[in-house]
Design a protein around this nucleic acid. Structure first.
Lengths: 405, 405
DNA sequence: CAACTTTGTTGACGCCTCAAACTTATACCG
DNA sequence: CGGTATAAGTTTGAGGCGTCAACAAAGTTG
């Protein structure tokens, strides 16, 4: 069972509550198309449990709203009248913004997570909010005519490497960008003329990975991402993201793993991200910086072509053991179905999967450790763009008929 | 934002979907009465946002179902026609079972969390599942006539100090009871003839405290309970309990707090419950065992009448500092609105609240530590009984019209 | 006591989904 | 090749539910 407290008002005052039903059903169908891909009307009927007639009406309405369209039935070879295929309209797009220390990535993503376009704008130095807004404005101005002609933009999704209050799109603290207590969604929205939302990048990555990557169909998963700037994460619990009171939940890099460790920039001692750390890996590898593919080539046995140097192996194993401690904690706390490891954590895992699995079993109660899956992230470079788009799509998906373009 | 994946079938095949609406609304109103206490129809109308007429119809239906009743309006002194007061029917009850090492507590709790009856049956030794079932059967047989005459039993809720698969009511492991891999809900249901559900006690305590105790109105809270057998907990996230894939989420006592600590029975080293521990407190107090009220009397300054002995103070402060580390972790992970401390953790906190608050601030990022509240649990001895009842009430609350008695 | 205010009650209305009957498009089979 | 079976889109009517508006009821205020 799921204990839930009384939900807030059913219908916000005005309007017939059958509208609510309709809205909910439209939302469900569009979400099925967006997350599950194109499907026949017959499949939608079966999956939703709704009536044939109702699906017909709903699909027609979605088509009229320009959010979906139908194509000729495929030659399925099955007996019976063929059912037309319903697609979420990939021309309905979200603009995504992903500011980083050395670049700002801007994307255009359609329903169904179709990546139409992506532009990486390299910056000379770490951008300020104002600079980021200017870059985004400029890039979008450049493709305005194309955007207007070919697509319908429903909103902007912004993925921030830091603590974001996702209710109002304000950045509380993004250490590596040097942003703190600044409104981000609002100026971007004002500059572009589209509604904008911002959220933590790792949380968005979790969403993306759970919907379109390794976590497909999983309802309880923990995503851990390792980047040069630390470890971020996100938790999907019972099918929905853990937000927390202000939307700051999921700072998994600041879990205690070593009481004798060093002090983290967060003020605590022995945080996961001070112990499991790209910098330390680079140090034993004798490198300054490294792309993810290069890292894989150096660490993953198959790719590395033989055994690792002893000091590298030792550091890898140490980091894996520490990671296992943290994962053990998360298992006790969340009891997830699976873990998804992204960024350099994926490479680290790839370097010695058995060691991590065994270490995790060591630190979990009874048989709990056996049932939990550990996977590498799948979405790679598209991850954040797709996650940010999901943020922007939230409103259309929740109320397809309520959108006014 | 709240990203949620496509919800499962809207209507489970059969029936008009207006039924769904009606069910949902009935559920909402009954839940409001149960959790929020008796209210006038006018209040229900305002809170729910539904129409006056609709509330009228819903209340009438709930009354016909025997789940609610109306009483004469109170003399409010306000202008206008007085609105009758609607009550959840407290004669609709759940039977609760709470097996412990030295006793089995059985309760009868009505809607509105009214505790009608509670019987503590002391056992000579730690009970087996079979013995527990027998005790419950015997106790219920004794009050069968009273139960049948005065109440309507909707189900049985069982609170287990251990890992429980709440889907099928099976105990995976309850270390202190010595139960493992045993069905519990099923034999009790068979013996009593009522539907039965089982869940982890700390999780149920969380529910109870969040609905009727310190956590009223809070949507994101972490509950931590300290007992002689360890530390359990539960997490309310976004208004619903964290369950995890198999329902084992919330084992907060097994969070790492000291890498140089001792090995816990769970296999890990330096778990919260090995460091923050009633046994250690008793040791410095020179006592063997202690009731909670006695503990308060010895630890809490006001009650203790002056300063604590230095070695006691030192141990208290050490445990508080360690607890703060764990709380710091939980803040990073859950970003809760408040913490509720029950059992001996409440006394520990009471002994030096400022120290814990200060230590928590020390280990949290930026201003996050300032906004989080720390409270002692309120429900005390009624806690588990009310929590277990909530488990049994789940079905009626979710679908008031669907119950067949 | 009349005016005012709030709330319960009743019946008309619109909307939604469903079920059933009908139509269409395909495969299967002799 | 034509008839039958099957699956699915389409059309139509029915039933249920919540809203709204008008009216009735039951208090307070001046």
């Amino acid at each position: 069972m799921t204990l839930t407290r009384a939900s807030r008002p059913l219908s916000a005052g005005v309007g017939n509550s059958n509208d609510q039903t309709r809205r909910h059903n439209l939302s469900t169908i569009l979400t099925m198309l967006h997350h599950g891909g194109a499907q026949t009307r017959a499949q939608l009927t079966r999956q939703s449990g709704l009536n044939r007639s109702t699906i017909g009406a709903l699909v027609t309405e979605l088509a009229e709203l320009g959010l979906a369209y139908e194509t000729e039935p495929e030659d399925s070879g099955l007996v019976g009248r063929p059912s037309p295929i319903v697609h979420a309209n990939e021309k309905v797009v979200a603009v995504t913004v992903n500011p980083d220390v050395d670049a700002i990535t801007i994307g255009v993503v359609g329903l169904g997570a179709e990546l139409h376009k992506r532009i990486r704008f390299e910056t000379a130095s770490v951008p300020t909010v104002r600079e980021a807004v200017n870059v985004v404005s400029a890039v979008l101005a450049g493709m305005r005519s194309e955007l207007d002609a070919q697509f319908r933009v429903v909103g902007v999704g912004i993925a921030i490497p830091g603590l974001v209050n996702s209710d109002d799109g304000t950045v509380l603290l993004a250490p590596h960008l040097g942003w703190h207590d600044e409104a981000v969604a609002e100026p971007i929205s004002a500059a572009l003329g589209y509604p904008a939302r911002a959220a933590n990048d790792a949380g968005l990555a979790t969403v993306a990975e759970s919907l379109f990557g390794s976590g497909r169909g999983v309802n309880d998963l923990v995503y851990l991402n390792g980047s040069a700037s630390g470890i971020g994460g996100g938790v999907l619990a019972g099918g929905s993201m853990l937000r927390g009171a202000q939307g700051f939940a999921g700072e998994l890099g600041h879990t205690l793993v070593n009481s004798a460790g060093i002090r983290c920039h967060c003020g605590k001692v022995g945080c996961l991200e001070t112990e499991v750390n790209l910098g330390r890996l680079l140090a034993v590898l004798g490198r300054d910086s490294l792309g993810l593919d290069e890292l894989d080539a150096l660490l993953v046995p198959d790719a590395a072509g033989g055994a690792l140097a002893p000091e590298v192996q030792a550091e890898v194993d140490r980091q894996l053991d520490v990671l296992a401690l943290a994962i053990g904690n998360f298992i006790s706390v969340f009891n997830p179905e699976s873990f998804v490891l992204g960024g350099f954590l994926g490479s680290l895992y790839g370097a010695n999967p058995e060691r991590l699995r065994a270490a995790v079993k060591d630190v979990t109660l009874g048989t709990l450790g056996d049932s939990v899956r550990i996977d590498r992230a799948q979405l790679r470079s598209r991850l954040l763009t797709i996650g940010a788009a999901e943020l922007a799509f939230g409103d259309v998906l929740a109320d397809p008929a309520g959108m006014h373009f």
